Every structure is written in C-alpha cells, then in structure tokens.
Deep mutational scan, measured.
Amino acid sequence: MQRVNMIMAESPGLITICLLGYLLSAECTVFLDHENANKILNRPKRYNSGKLEEFVQGNLERECMEEKCSFEEAREVFENTERTTEFWKQYVDGDQCESNPCLNGGSCKDDINSYECWCPFGFEGKNCELDVTCNIKNGRCEQFCKNSADNKVVCSCTEGYRLAENQKSCEPAVPFPCGRVSVSQTSKLTRAETVFPDVDYVNSTEAETILDNITQSTQSFNDFTRVVGGEDAKPGQFPWQVVLNGKVDAFCGGSIVNEKWIVTAAHCVETGVKITVVAGEHNIEETEHTEQKRNVIRIIPHHNYNAAINKYNHDIALLELDEPLVLNSYVTPICIADKEYTNIFLKFGSGYVSGWGRVFHKGRSALVLQYLRVPLVDRATCLRSTKFTIYNNMFCAGFHEGGRDSCQGDSGGPHVTEVEGTSFLTGIISWGEECAMKGKYGIYTKVSRYVNWIKEKTKLT
C-alpha cells in the first residue's frame, strides 16, 4: 500500500490518463441519441435557420407576430419608411378606419389613436360632414345658397324668414311668412316636400332668348283662358290664391305678392273693366268669414305684352289694390325667389296649380277651390304637342294621358313649387288646347323671366 501511494504521488498524470480511459469505455446513459432527441424537440425550422439574422431580410411573422416588435424591426421587413409607417399605425392600436367614419364618399386613412378623412370636392370637416359648395344638395341650405369668396357655403332665406341657429334652416321672422300653410287642420295635408338634388348652379339658368321682337298675326285659340281631375282644397291650404270678379264672377285667378299687390295673367284683364279681388276665398257660393274683398285701382301688364300681336306672350300683369290686405292664416303671400332659384325650383319637376275653373272641358265651374299636382314636361315634348308657338318664356306641365289639367277660369292662378315646406311661385296658368285632352298640356308663363320686374313694381313704400 505504501508503494502504491508513492507511485500516485510521483505520477499524477498517469492516474488522470487511467481515469479518462475508464470513462470513455463506459456506456453513456444520461444523453439520448440524435434521433430520439429530435422526437422530443420537434420544432419547425425557421426561415433563416442556421444563418445569422443580421444578414437576412426581415420576416413579418418572425419579427412582429411571434413577439412584439419595434418600429426598427418592422422597418427591416418593409425596407421602406412609408410602408412601415402605414403598417405601424394599425399594428400599434388597430384600424381606426374600420367603422368607416368618413361621410359623403370620403376616404379614410388610419393613424395612431386617430384617423384622417380625405374629402371629395365640396366637403370638409373631420368626417367630411361639412358642405362647402352650393353645387351639392344646395349646400344643405333649406332655401338659398351662395358661395363666399373663400368658396364656403353661405345660406340665406327669402323675405319674412331668418336663418336658424344651425345656419342652414329657415324659420319665420314674421307672423305670416310667405308660402307657408298655417291653418292647423290643413298642415297635415301639406304636399310632399321637395329635397334639393345635386345641381350645376353655374349652368342652372337656361341660355334662352326671349323672342321679344317676333311679330306674329293673332292666333285663334280655343278655350285658351284655361282644375280638371283635381281635388277639393281645404280652407287655408292655398292662402296665396285669390279669385278675380268682373263682368262675371271667378273669371280668373291670381296670387298675393304682398298686402297691396296681386300677380295674374295679362290676358285676364281689360282696361276700363272694374275688377274686384277676393282673398281668403274657399267656396265661392258661401260666406265663410275668411274672405277679404278689395278693388283694383291700377293694372300693370308687362311692358312687352301686346294682345294685338299675341294674347299669351309675356302673359303676366300686376294688380294694385285700393287697401292693403290683412295677412292671416287664410290670406298669405306666395314666396318669389330670384331668377336663378325660381328656375331651379321649376326644374324640380312638379308643381301645384289651383283655381275655381271648370271641372271638365266646357263644363261647370268649381264651387270649392280645386288643386292638382302636375309634372313638368320637357321642352321637346311640349313643342311636338301643339302647332302653336311655345315661346321661351312659357313652359308645359300636365299629363300625356289627359284627364287632369287646369281649365277655363283658372287662368292667372299660381303654379307653385314647394321647397322644404315653403311654396314659391314658378308659373302662372296661361293657356292650353281644350282641357285635359290626351297628348295636350297646360301652358304656363315662366315666372323666372319676370321676377325682377315683379319685385321692382310691387315694392311697398
């Protein structure tokens, strides 16, 4: 034993070699072989497995989906700052455009905790909710729209109204504003409101030439003092309507412009014939205590009207009353817009006519005020429907199939267009061939041609 100890002390290297040989010859039971080890760690190889990531292109799944990435790591994937920024906006807080917040056709661009709407022409605001041009839906104005110097929408209202708090709607500024039905039992019968379409306001006024200088022999019209197929109006439903009495009662109609003036057809009036105007009328054979009678003290036909040349060209006249009318729910003026808007309103496509005229061709006159909704007829169809001249200051309205029309005794009465609950004068009943005849239409004086003249002559002093 002493000898062994001496050998170990003198030859430590020998001992180490012996131990190493023993270990190498022993069977290893701690580690699995290569094949079995792979069965336990069965993990798919990654895209760049075996390579240094710093030297390969980034992978979106590896960089940002398996674990949260930084902007720089995302930049490695896209290799483009702009594309990385677009991805980053949604990656950080989701897609803010998912709810489609942009209105009126706006395009949404996502941002971090926010979004941006790219608005089409005519709109602005956070969600493109603000109209900035009158060309689109009248700028959301209830009545009139004008573009300011910086191309912003400025709404306005006709006389007797003021802008509401929203700067879009119009509200009454006087007790009985024009064009409004205020009798409670008839307010439910107000005709369907007309909503502004998209309009090209630059070209809204037709490029028409008034044929002022045409000389033409007097034409022989049949029954051209021209509501057939209409309905009984309720008291106060058309408070701007008046009836004219002269040699015979209810020979023509008219509309209240203001307390002192009536507008009617020029062919209705004769110099030297006494005319009485009755406002607030409903049943011409009954006294309903809503009527107001006034005498006409002055007749002003349009300066281009000449019955000797043509009885229905420039067929418009103004009547001055001896005493002002007292405005109330049964006696209310009709609204008159400017030339541009009167023309736009007419193009809405349908209007209402009213009167006490004959209820059928050569038949009896109506006792109760009649009204009828009539569609506008395109000019080409209008011209083809008659052998008589249709001037540019006239328009056609009615039904091709016949059966409904204005008729004798309705002449001078109103053709009105309702705009968001307020009625505007767009025409004056003038003439036609018979009444409600198939293929024939009622012919009306186009008020847009005469609004400046009306307003100039009827100013209240």
Rank of each mutant, 00 (worst) to 15 (best):
I256G: 01
V326R: 09
R294V: 02
C141M: 00
G421M: 05
A266H: 02
K51A: 10
S448C: 04
V353C: 03
D198S: 13
E193D: 14
L130S: 12
V56W: 00
M6L: 13
C108F: 02
S423M: 15
I297K: 11
A308K: 09
E434D: 15
S385A: 13
A164C: 05
L41Q: 05
R62C: 00
E323I: 09
R364F: 06
E79K: 07
N135T: 14
A307S: 12
L372C: 11
G50S: 02
R373L: 06
Y341G: 04
D212P: 07
V447D: 00
S25M: 12
T386I: 09
D315V: 00
C102E: 02
L425R: 00
A149Q: 12
N5E: 12
N127W: 11
R162V: 12
K39N: 08
T133H: 12
A380R: 07
Y305E: 00
V248D: 08
L369F: 14
Q90H: 14
A207M: 10
Y444T: 01
C117I: 01
E73N: 00
T158L: 09
A307Q: 11
I316A: 02
T194P: 08
T389P: 15
W356A: 04
G13Y: 14
K311R: 14
P235L: 09
G230Q: 08
E286W: 08
G402W: 15
T271Y: 07
L60M: 06
K293Q: 11
I454F: 00
T271R: 13
K188S: 14
R379V: 10
E72P: 05
L369W: 08
F424D: 01
S187C: 06
V242K: 00
G272K: 09
C128S: 03
H303M: 08
N100D: 11
V228E: 11
D223W: 07
N222T: 13
E124F: 10
A436I: 14
Y161L: 03
K137R: 14
G122E: 09
C134F: 03
C252D: 01
C134K: 03
S169A: 13
S406H: 13
N245P: 03
N313F: 07
T84D: 02
F144D: 00
H303L: 05
Y352Q: 03
S220Q: 11
S329I: 05
Y391H: 14
Q143M: 11
N313W: 08
I112T: 12
E10Y: 05
A307K: 10
K137D: 12
V273L: 14
N127D: 08
N36Y: 05
E72L: 05
S156D: 11
K137S: 15
L14D: 02
L32S: 15
M6Y: 10
A436N: 14
A266W: 00
E35A: 12
C170F: 00
C170V: 01
I390K: 06
T16R: 11
R75G: 12
S329M: 09
